[in-house]
């Protein structure tokens, strides 16, 4: 605080003399940073070691993918979304169980959170950064069955392939529910379900307001990107598929 006061005094002193200048003309424009502008050598050279280190890390091959994965390959569920949701339940549950003695019943992420496709071939650290550039962490919310029912209706209303695991949701042509199962069992309004998601959605992101009804939430201090990296490392070949977890009967 003292330093700040000193700064104030100094700047006040510097501003004592009184000029009478006012703007007569103001010009404003935007300059594009185009490829034909030469890079400044000293800055470029300064960046190089950082760039080389990152490229080395990013190019580390973690797994093999025999086909392209894109989030546009399914209407209600996609292979890439299923991969993310399955990875989440597989790697988060042991941590959650160790901390609480409970098990994760459901995973729900958001479709918009799949930030990139993955091309067939080598899956690298860069792939994980592209799919999940953000710092979001895994959280597990305890939701009553009623709130899970709201979640089901959110999925139906959105008609979007939000990544899910642990649930089976089949819709009739008119969007009525044909079948809904949680961990293979019917949904009970009074039961408590443990729903793994990310910290952004837990706070109601993407209008997932049912998460605001969480009775408690456990942050696993596990970044989703790191979870994906660990998952890729643990698998030799990735072969996720679109399946029956969320479908509409045609």
């Amino acid at each position: 605080m003292k330093r700040y006061l000193l700064f104030l005094l100094l700047t006040a002193g510097a501003c004592k003399f009184n000029d009478n200048y006012t703007p007569a003309r103001i010009e404003g424009k935007q300059l594009e940073i185009t490829p034909d502008i030469p890079a400044n050598d000293s800055l470029e050279n300064f960046i190089t070691p950082y760039k080389e280190h990152i490229n080395k890390e990013m190019e580390e091959v973690l797994a093999y993918l025999p086909y392209n994965l894109s989030k546009s390959d399914g209407r209600y569920n996609t292979a890439i979304g299923n991969l993310m949701a399955d990875a989440l339940i597989e790697l988060s549950n042991p941590i959650f169980n160790k901390r609480t003695g409970e098990n994760i019943d459901i995973v729900l992420l958001n479709y918009g959170g799949i930030r990139s496709s993955i091309a067939k071939g080598d899956v690298t650290t860069r792939s994980a950064f592209q799919v999940m550039p953000f710092e979001n962490e895994v959280v597990v919310a305890a939701l009553k069955g009623e709130a899970v029912r709201e979640m089901i209706h959110y999925l139906i209303d959105s008609g979007t392939a939000h990544p899910v695991a642990g649930i089976e949701l089949q819709l009739e042509k008119d969007n009525s529910i044909k079948k809904v199962l949680i961990q293979g069992k019917p949904l009970e309004d009074s039961a408590t379900y443990y729903v793994a998601t990310n910290d952004y959605l837990l706070e109601g992101g993407d209008s997932m307001n049912f998460f605001l009804k969480a009775e408690e939430a456990t942050n696993l201090d596990y970044k989703i990107r790191n979870l994906l990296i660990d998952y890729f490392k643990a698998k030799d070949t990735l072969n996720p598929v679109r399946d029956q977890r969320f479908i509409k009967v045609e």
């Binding site: 200048y21 006012t22 703007p23 007569a24 003309r25 103001i26 010009e27 404003g28 424009k29 935007q30 300059l31 594009e32 940073i33």
Partner: peptide, 10 residues
């Protein structure tokens, strides 16, 4: 991009 605003004062 970079923004550029020029003030001409008198």
């Amino acid at each position: 991009n970079i923004g550029r605003i020029d003030f001409y004062l008198d």
